[in-house]
Amino acid sequence: MAERIGQRIAARRRARRMTQADLAREAHVSLAMIKGCERGVRSPGPSTLEAIASALGLDASRLDPSYVGTGRRVHAALPAISATIAGYELALDPVGRPLGQLRSDIETAVGWRLAAQYGLIAAQVPKLLGDALAHLHATSGPHIEEAARLVVAAARTADAVAYKFGAHDLSARLIDVMRWAAGHSEAPDLSACVAYVRAETFLAARAYRRGHLALEQALDVGPTPNTARSTATLGALHMRTAVVAARAGSAEAAHDHLNAARTLAQGLPEAVYLGTSFGPSSVRIHEVAVSVSLGGGHIGRALDIAREWSPGPEIPAERRSGFWIEVARARLWSGNPDGAFNCLKEARKQAPQHVREHPWAREDIGKILRLKRAPDESLTSYAEWIGVT
């Protein structure tokens, strides 16, 4: 079995013109693991298999037909995450790993989140979050800010699987942990980062007007843009506010915030700041999101952007995937189901785990199936993969 899995990995990697080092980097696993798998001397565990498959742009079952699925493994991990944050404000456990190792492991986990590697997160994040909380409880003085940042980053990584897999109550509790941790720090950029994530609560509940108000209040006390990180954090908060304002039906406010984000992005390299990608490309992606959220006569702008531009490798995989899901919806609304399906196929190439759990992707595939009287094999296969049929 390991040999056959390795052969499939190698064949797909070569088809995508990736080196073994390229695959290791994209999958966030060691080069030795990739080499061992391809030679058939190592058998990847479920989380590693998912990571490799995601980097290759396919579902893990294509590499191992016996694979049981990311969703089952993530849902099995959710109770452990919940238990970790029960009484999070109470000091209980000793610090489980040295600070340097904790810092490195959380940085790795943030990379998994940005690459939509939900299986890897599910396997590691309960213990990682517990260690971050223990470190914050054990820290005082000038090191408290870093300890708070580590808890926010770990809780946000856990929130990625909770929110994406529909555990919205757990997601809201994790955001409470982030707000509590940020309260230990006097850093406005950390509070702004938490406000950015908190918008998920309003998006999940479709409480757009209240979410818009909460984000406006966060911007009122946001960081002064005098460093690259504070500028990017403020810009990201404007981007998120633009989308929520658009969902609330306030086109003027949405465009005002989008323009503010665009101004802050000028001269700033596209990069990940405090766990959020920001820069000119991210602003353009959010312009598409705003246009789709506003709907109606605004859809044309999303289509115009997609004709002229698409995100490159400077953008994390999950956000690239999100761009194509938004454009798919715009193309479907404009009467182009074939174009919408092509976008969803591209989204799957970028981050399969993200697409499979995205409600818009499932909803739009269902609509495309209904519109196509005789769906082709690829559409039927996609619908089965995403769980529509």
Rank of each mutant, 00 (worst) to 15 (best):
Leu268Tyr: 04
Ile85Phe: 06
Tyr208His: 07
Pro337Asn: 00
Glu186Asn: 09
Val194Phe: 08
Leu128Trp: 14
Ser291Ile: 01
Gln124Trp: 11
Ser230Gln: 12
Ser293Lys: 11
Glu26Phe: 11
Ser321Gln: 08
Arg97Thr: 15
Ala55Asn: 03
Phe202Lys: 00
Tyr382Phe: 15
Ile175Gln: 09
Gly166His: 09
Ala15Arg: 12
Arg348Phe: 13
Asp159Glu: 14
Ala195Trp: 04
Ala24Gly: 15
Val29Ala: 03
Gly57Pro: 07
Arg42Ala: 13
Tyr67Gln: 02
Gly322Asn: 15
Val74Lys: 00
Pro311Leu: 08
Ala182Cys: 05
Gly141His: 08
Val41Thr: 13
Gly267Thr: 07
Gly45Ile: 06
Gly69Phe: 07
Ser66Thr: 13
Tyr273Ile: 09
Thr233Val: 13
Ala138Glu: 10
His168Phe: 10
Glu384Ala: 14
Gly366Leu: 01
Ala218Ile: 02
Ser321Glu: 12
Leu133Glu: 06
Ala236Asp: 10
Glu318Thr: 11
Cys193Leu: 09
Ile315Leu: 05
Ala253Leu: 14
Leu268His: 03
His137Trp: 13
Gly295Asn: 14
Gly249Asp: 07
Ala181Ile: 00
Leu114Ser: 02
Leu215Glu: 08
Val244Tyr: 03
His168Gly: 00
Val29Pro: 04
Ala199Gly: 09
Phe165Pro: 00
Pro142Arg: 10
Pro188Gln: 07
Ser381Val: 10
Glu146Met: 10
